[in-house]
Amino acid sequence: MLDVESKLVGYNKKSENVEIQETLMNKIWQFGLLIWLFLVSLAAFLWAPLAEGLGEYTRILYFHVPVAWVTVLAFLIGAVYSISYLKTRRIIYDQIAESAGQLGLLYCVLATVTGSIWAKVSWGSFWNWDPRETSIFILLLIYAAYFALRSAIEEEERKAVLSSVYSIFAFVSVPFFVFIVPRIYSSLHPDPLINTQTKINMDGKMLTTFLSSLFGFTVLFFWIFKRKIDLVKIKLDLRKMEN
């Protein structure tokens, strides 16, 4: 234990690429994010008006859609880092892609659960294979398959290469689900109600709340993601010192 601590002290002194100290800026950002999300929650429940045809169920929109958006964003980031790994063969990119995958899985579960609750109150059943429900489920399956593949390979480099290839390959086939299938097959999803003819048909207050929530959730994701990247860097540096 002491050994590791002394190493960490030495590590802090010569840390060049990792900033683990809490800066004032960081704290302001965190606090700002907390206030922002708090205000968004208040606005979603008290300030924003209700959409026609959706009633009180409108309120879940401000949480469900941002979470689903972050799921797709995490998936995209994972694929980008997988490509970087295959190009440069630096193990850190694979580790970052894995972190993005872990966060994506978390958000994917949240999106599935919130969507399912919304489906229960407005369509009458928790699950009915609406095209959007299918596509979020496919994302869930892909994340699960990605981690199943990772756990089935012992050797680190092989694990990195194969899981990167799988994540890119899956990323190529997902657009068929997320974008093409919902357009071919009819959906009960409320975006035909809110988003007709690709014009966003929202009240000003609704739109403000919605975009603020989207922004807040995206920043929250990037904040957690940055934390995970720092962790990965520390882990890799520690391993380098042990060797």
Partner: peptide, 28 residues
């Protein structure tokens, strides 16, 4: 996916798990 799983352990189970999400657009 066969090429990917041939390098991993637990090949049989993994093949269906990895292929299903990718092949679902074809099935649908």
């Amino acid at each position: 996916t066969a090429a990917i799983i041939s390098k991993a352990s637990a090949k049989g189970a993994l093949f269906a798990v990895l292929s299903f999400p990718i092949l679902l657009p074809v099935i649908v």
